[in-house]
Amino acid sequence: MFKVKVHVMLKDDVLDPQGKTVSHSLDHLGYKGLSNMKIGKYIEFKVDSTDEATTKAQVDKMAKDVLSNPVIEKYEFYMERV
């Protein structure tokens, strides 16, 4: 069994108004020096499997085809055996 953690973020050249607004708000509250704030998605799940290579390939395909939209988003994922 593997525990998988997927991060989906907007690509660097795509404007993230949410990140910008939150960053501005924090600045107003006195948290200075913040920059490049981006808000993305965090998805976690378990996969019932023993083979790491096959699972990795499967998760990569899921992340590319479904969990993210490659036109606007990038993803990275981490796996740990549980």
Partner: peptide, 17 residues
């Protein structure tokens, strides 16, 4: 249509949110 690839590009949250 953009998600399924019949049209190019994507739709994102309005700048004003």
């Amino acid at each position: 249509l953009t998600e399924c690839g019949l049209l190019p590009g994507a739709l994102l949250m309005n700048t004003s949110q």
